[in-house]
C-alpha cells in the first residue's frame, strides 16, 4: 500500500542545471577577499547578540564566580578567601536541606505539570469537552507567581479556606497546618505551583496533538488498537518533540522557583522549605553575605547547566 522507505531514500535526484563557469579575472585574491568579507559581514550581524549575551550573562556570571571567592558584604572591601565559602556551604545542614528541597521540587515539577498537562490536553482534545474546561486549566498560567502565592496563601494557612471547608464538612481530622511542617509545606507548594504552571504544558501538548497525522491514528485503529494502547503506541511517540520541550521548561522552572516559596513560607519555618534559589536570595539580600550567596548561585548555575545539558544531549537528535 505504501512505498517502502528505502526506495524513497535512494530515489535519484533530478540532474542540476549546468552552472555557469566562474569568471576568470583576479580569482585568487578575490576569493580570499570575498571569504573575509563574508565572515566580517557575519560577525557584524552576530555582534549585537554576542554583546548582549556577553554583557548580560557571561560578565555577570564571571563576576559572581569571582565574588563567590571573596568575603564581600556590600560595604567593606572584598577580601579573597579562596574556596572558604564553598567549604562552609557544603558543611551546613541548612544547605543540604536546601539542596534536597531543590531535588524534590525538580522531581515534583517534572512529574506533575508534565503528566497532568499531557492528560488534560489529551482528554480535552479527544473528548470534545467544552472549551471552557480547557481554559480553566490554561488560564492560571497567565497569573504571576506572586499572585499565585497570595491566592494559595489564603487557602493553605491554618485559618485558610481549605481548613475551613474541611471543618464545614465535619472533616476536622483532615485539617492540617499545611505550611508549617516539612515536607508537607514543600509538597503543597509544588501543588500550588503546578496549578499555575500546568497551563503551558497543556498548550504545548495541544499543539503537539494537532500535528499528529490523522492517517497514523486511523492506521492504528485499523490494526485493532484503541484507547490507551492507541495513545501509547501511536500518539505519544509522535509527541516526543513537544515532550522534550515541556520537560525542559519544567526542569528550568523547578530549579529557579522562588516567588511561590518566598511568599508562602519565606523559606521557613526556619529554613526548612528553602530551595537553592531562596537560599541564594536570603544570603545575598537579607544577610548581605554576597560571597556566600554568590557561592550558592554558582552551585545552582552548575546544577542547572549540567541537568539541562545532560537532558538535552539525551533528547536532541544527533547530527550527522
Amino acid at each position: 500500500m505504501t512505498e517502502p522507505a528505502g526506495q524513497t531514500a535512494v530515489r535519484p535526484r533530478a540532474p542540476e542545471p549546468e552552472r555557469k563557469a566562474p569568471r576568470a579575472r583576479n580569482r585568487g585574491s578575490n576569493v580570499r577577499y570575498d571569504g573575509f568579507a563574508a565572515r566580517a559581514g557575519s560577525a557584524v550581524h552576530l555582534l549585537p547578540a554576542v554583546l548582549l549575551v556577553g554583557v548580560l550573562l557571561l560578565v555577570p556570571f564571571g563576576y559572581t564566580v569571582y565574588q563567590s571567592l571573596t568575603d564581600y558584604d556590600g560595604l567593606s572591601t572584598a577580601q579573597f578567601v579562596g574556596l572558604d565559602n564553598y567549604v562552609a556551604l557544603f558543611g551546613e545542614e541548612r544547605f543540604h536541606r536546601s539542596l534536597l528541597n531543590t531535588v524534590i521540587w525538580m522531581v515534583g515539577t517534572l512529574l506533575l505539570p508534565v503528566l497532568l498537562g499531557l492528560m488534560i490536553a489529551v482528554l480535552t482534545n479527544a473528548s470534545g469537552w467544552a472549551t471552557w474546561v480547557r481554559y480553566a486549566f490554561v488560564l492560571p498560567y497567565a497569573i504571576s507567581g506572586t499572585a499565585t502565592a497570595v491566592i494559595w496563601g489564603f487557602m493553605l494557612r491554618s485559618d485558610g479556606a481549605i481548613n475551613q471547608v474541611l471543618g464545614a464538612f465535619g472533616l476536622d481530622e483532615l485539617q492540617r497546618e499545611w505550611l508549617l511542617s516539612w515536607p508537607m509545606n514543600t509538597i503543597v507548594m509544588i501543588l500550588a505551583n503546578t496549578w499555575q504552571a500546568v497551563g503551558i504544558a497543556v498548550i504545548l501538548f495541544l499543539v503537539g496533538l494537532q500535528t499528529v497525522p490523522r492517517e497514523t491514528v486511523e492506521a492504528g485503529m485499523l490494526d485493532g488498537a484503541s484507547g490507551f494502547r492507541l495513545f501509547r503506541s501511536i500518539v505519544f511517540p509522535q509527541l516526543r518533540p513537544v515532550t522534550v520541550v515541556v520537560v525542559g521548561i519544567s526542569i528550568a522552572n523547578s530549579l529557579r522557583v522562588f516567588d511561590v516559596i518566598w511568599l508562602l513560607t519565606n523559606g521557613g519555618p526556619g529554613w526548612v522549605s528553602e530551595t537553592l534559589a531562596v537560599t541564594m536570595y536570603r544570603m545575598t539580600f537579607v544577610l548581605s553575605e554576597y560571597g556566600h550567596g554568590s557561592a550558592v548561585a554558582v552551585v545552582l548555575a552548575v546544577i542547572v547547566v549540567s541537568v539541562s545539558w545532560v537532558y538535552l544531549r539525551q533528547q536532541m537528535p544527533k547530527r550527522g
Binding site: E177, L180, S181, G268, P269, G270, V272, L287, S288, E289
Partner: peptide
C-alpha cells in the same frame, strides 16, 4: 546577621 539568623530559630520554635 545574628538577629536575622536567630529569628529563624525562634520561628521554628513557635511552630
Amino acid at each position: 546577621a545574628l538577629v536575622e539568623g536567630n529569628v529563624k530559630d525562634l520561628a521554628t520554635f513557635m511552630v
